[in-house]
Design a protein around this nucleic acid. Structure first.
Lengths: 154, 154
DNA sequence: AAAAATATGTTGCATATACAACAATATTAT
DNA sequence: ATAATATTGTTGTATATGCAACATATTTTT
């Protein structure tokens, strides 16, 4: 006889889905409250580009966990707003489109970060830093092991 | 001077999003491998209905974390397949559509669960039960506290 | 050298998901 | 009593997201 299955609402998958949704809503609430003029995805991409200057589109897609199609669309928007530049280069002997953050993009990013930092410092914490760090670390550890079982087709 | 903001890929939100995505893909991979004829959402709804006989649509929507519109559509599909029945009743003096799992739905659910239990027992665990339980518990604790800050409009 | 497979990015389309508006009914406020 | 508000569910629509197919170029296989 096998071990009896839990009900779905008692599983890790359910709790993960729910927590991720709650945290995403919180994040977007903050973006709105602070009058930030970028979509969350755009901010995330801009932040990643800022610390991975010269990254190519597919590598960025893997980091933001979106497919290549949508990553391209997010980048179109960032480029139109003058926050990044794109240029053709090679990676492993192949032509790829790389990108870098512009002066204007950097200013925008700094400005947003300042707003968020200020907001965080003024807001009462509902969960201690240690607890959040602990959760982050165990999540990462578990995720990395499960990730080996699948292939994210990006 | 405020505390410097982490890069997004080092945040809990990012790790949550990524882990939730990985686990969802894993779940769907298993559903496919086991030739399960329901969508994941349908299975989840059926499982919840099985242990909340007579639940109304909105309460179910809150549990599966989907809006009322889509919850209704999932239920239409389960009803068409004869896995649940829906009936009008009252809750707090209001007319609501309640539902219950049918004999056929119960058989389907048992069958799916047996397949999954068997699959799990045959599969080498990449993460210990204790570690998963620990993660589940801290996730839930943290989520409940953040959840008080928002309102899921369902 | 030719063919097959792989990597990258784009376009178009299908599906998923959320949101807004509405209908029906019940509760609360004026 | 009437009006305003709230609850539940449905329909329609907009947005998000992902996938399949294609173009291009390169590497690997035969």
């Amino acid at each position: 006889m096998y071990k009896k299955l839990k009900h779905y609402t008692d599983t890790l998958n359910y709790e993960l889905e729910k927590t991720a949704k709650v945290m995403k809503i919180l994040g977007m609430q903050v973006m709105e409250k602070l009058n930030i003029s970028l979509f969350l995805d755009e901010y995330v991409a801009l932040d990643i580009i800022s610390c991975h200057q010269g990254i190519c589109q597919r590598d960025l897609a893997k980091l933001i966990i979106k497919d290549r199609a949508n990553t391209g669309r997010i980048l179109n928007s960032l480029e139109e707003k003058g926050l990044i530049t794109r240029f053709v280069d090679t990676k492993n002997n192949r032509l790829v489109r790389k990108m870098a953050i512009t002066e204007s993009g950097y200013k925008m990013l700094k400005n947003i970060n300042k707003k968020i930092e200020s907001y965080i410092s003024e807001t009462k914490k509902v969960v201690s830093e240690e607890e959040l760090d602990g959760l982050y670390n165990s999540l990462k550890k578990v995720r990395e092991r499960f990730e080996e079982l699948i292939e994210l087709k990006i």
